[in-house]
Computed example of a mutant assay.
Amino acid sequence: MKIIMSVRGLDGVLETLQALPAEVVSKKGGPVKLALAKAARVIRAQAVANLTATISSTQDSESTGLLAKNVIVTRGKEPHGTKGERYLVRVRRKAYDGDKLGRRQKAGKRVTTHKTASLKEYGSSHQPATPWLRPAVQQKGQEAIDVFTADLNKRIDATVRKLAQQNKGK
């Protein structure tokens, strides 16, 4: 006895599966890029909160807010030798205008947000360290991973539905 079975729609499924990797991770980023950026913003928010608390806890602090405004999330170059995405929580380099008395600083002696952030994070021989970025990663690292996982799953499901809809009639 011979049984003949016919399966329809498999062409669309194969096309969907073949199209998925390029859709998920592409030069433009796709769902991985967007989910990773969302997770990095979780860590950035905690870093800014830690920084603000650190600045307000120091005595004689007249903060301009420039450092906190320049803690940013940026897309970095892909890790060396691999394909993938990288997002960085970092401080944008900006120079402070002058000292407390309004005097302009000499070009070689300009104080930047990079220098201030580094001194706060690691300290110096004259200033104790008051870390704000590393604790943010420790405090919100697991939450960032959870946000990344949930958002990536949601975006991949949407991408699969979109590609399946496109390839349905083929």
Rank of each mutant, 00 (worst) to 15 (best):
L152S: 06
G84T: 02
S125I: 08
T64K: 11
G169N: 09
A39R: 01
R104M: 14
Q166P: 00
K140Y: 10
S57D: 12
P131H: 07
G84C: 09
K100C: 02
Q139I: 11
P21M: 12
G30K: 01
K140C: 10
P31S: 03
Q166Y: 06
D97V: 08
T130C: 01
A150R: 15
K154Q: 09
G108N: 03
V42W: 00
V48N: 02
Q127A: 03
L17D: 12
I43D: 04
T159M: 15
A39W: 01
G12C: 04
Q59H: 11
K2M: 01
A95T: 09
K94I: 04
E62M: 00
K94T: 01
D99H: 10
K154L: 10
K162N: 13
S56M: 06
T113H: 15
Q165R: 14
Y87R: 02
S56D: 13
K28H: 09
N153S: 07
A150W: 02
T54K: 14
E121W: 02
Q46W: 09
M5C: 01
V91K: 02
D146N: 08
Y122A: 10
Y96S: 07
P135M: 00
L36K: 03
S57T: 06
P21G: 11
V71W: 01
A19I: 00
K27G: 15
T116D: 08
R90F: 05
L14Q: 11
V24H: 05
L20I: 04
L67T: 00
Q127M: 09
K28V: 07
T58Q: 15
L66H: 04
G102V: 12
L88K: 08
V89F: 04
L66G: 06
N50H: 00
G102M: 10
Q127D: 00
M1V: 15
N153C: 01
K115C: 00
L66Y: 05
A158G: 13
G141S: 12
T149W: 00
S26F: 13
D151R: 05
T130A: 13
Q138R: 15
S124W: 05
V89E: 04
G102Q: 09
A45K: 06
